[in-house]
């Protein structure tokens, strides 16, 4: 009898380590698009001392002068009760942050940086080298924009911080006031980021369509004047037409201040009458209190804090203003990228 042996199963022995290695997928080649390199160069270039020192100095000057004058008028605030100290410091800081640190100064510096995104490269004759590298034109623009955005956000953080510190130091208020100030610092900083992002895209668009930097700077100046000064003239010269003909729709200052107050209200900010008066005068956000304002100011009781709160002039919703602003900038970004893709650039 022949013995029938069972079929031998072929067992392949693979060590566990090798099995694991087999499972591992080969490393994918790093996808290169040049964004990081352009971002890095722009970011570092904008951090030049020529730019940072004036920015920080100008950030301090306005709060310094403003606070010094107020100390002369209001007296020693440090000895008043804590709520009063908080109200005074937070409200004044908020007002000049909107007007100066996150306002005129920010617009000026953002404008100066953004108007040179593309135009300065074209004028210098260096754009041609960038375009001959394996990078998309849109990547060049976005890399530059991101470099500017991060740079300006960092600079603005320090600008606002220095402004608040200066205010608290001059008013000689307690540390608790500074801490409360830091809480309201957040909406102001968020508003600043919005402004940095929007100004960058608006003036960046100009740098694409226009070769001359001067034009960009002039447009920026015009925008600053329109936002911070034109509204007053409009409201004072033709008050009857302001609401009848919906001129507030064109009043950039009013719309921006609405957005700013929207940000602040999210953090439970309560304006004092002086704040309302100033905002009303410059931006029309509150009922204008021109002429005799003593009755409003008298109502501010140093011991009990705020007694009067006017309602905001809500001709339109701040969300509508915000959406319109963001839509315009996104539209300009897309249009700018399309134009840049088609643009002929020669040495």
């Amino acid at each position: 009898m022949s013995e029938i042996s069972p079929p031998i199963e072929k067992i392949e022995f693979i060590p566990v380590e090798l099995l694991e290695k087999k499972k591992k997928k080969p490393k994918k080649e790093r996808r290169y698009n040049g964004l990081g390199i352009i971002f890095q160069k722009t970011f570092l270039e904008l951090f030049s001392l020529k730019r940072v020192i004036p920015y920080i100095l100008l950030s301090v000057i306005f709060p310094f002068i403003f606070s010094a004058i107020l100390t002369g008028t209001l007296g020693n605030i440090g000895v008043m009760n804590l709520d009063y100290q908080i109200d005074i410091v937070v409200n004044y800081f908020t007002f000049y942050a909107f007007f100066w640190n996150a306002g005129i100064l920010l617009w000026l510096f953002c404008g100066l940086s953004a108007t040179t995104f593309i135009s300065s490269e074209i004028n210098q004759g260096t754009m041609i080298f960038l375009l001959t590298k394996p990078i998309r034109r849109s990547t060049i623009y976005i890399g530059k924009y991101l470099g500017y955005l991060v740079n300006m956000i960092i600079m603005q953080f320090f600008s606002l911080l220095i402004a608040l510190t200066t205010t608290c130091t001059i008013f000689r208020v307690s540390r608790k006031v500074f801490a409360t100030g830091m809480y309201y610092f957040i909406p102001i900083f968020l508003f600043s980021i919005l402004i940095i992002a929007c100004v960058g895209l608006i003036l960046g668009f100009l740098s694409i369509i226009n070769k001359r930097v001067v034009v960009g700077v002039l447009v920026n100046m015009l925008l600053i004047i329109t936002i911070y000064f034109l509204g007053i003239i409009l409201r004072l010269a033709i008050p009857q037409f302001y609401t009848t003909y919906h001129l507030y729709l064109l009043d950039l200052g009013y719309n921006l201040s609405l957005i700013f107050l929207f940000f602040l209200s999210g953090f439970g900010f309560q304006p004092i009458p002086t704040f309302q008066k100033n905002m009303g005068l410059f931006f029309g956000t509150y009922p204008t209190m021109l002429g005799d304002t003593s009755k409003y100011l008298d109502s501010l009781d140093p011991e009990n804090g705020i007694t009067i709160i006017s309602s905001v002039n809500s001709y339109i919703s701040p969300i509508v203003s915000l959406i319109v602003l963001v839509s315009i900038t996104v539209f300009l970004l897309i249009l700018g990228l399309i134009i840049l893709e088609r643009k002929d650039i020669s040495p």
Partner: peptide, 15 residues
């Protein structure tokens, strides 16, 4: 970018 990856360009009077 695919074409530019294979390309090196030098122009007259570079800046």
């Amino acid at each position: 970018p695919a074409a530019n990856k294979l390309l090196g360009v030098a122009i007259a009077n570079p800046q």
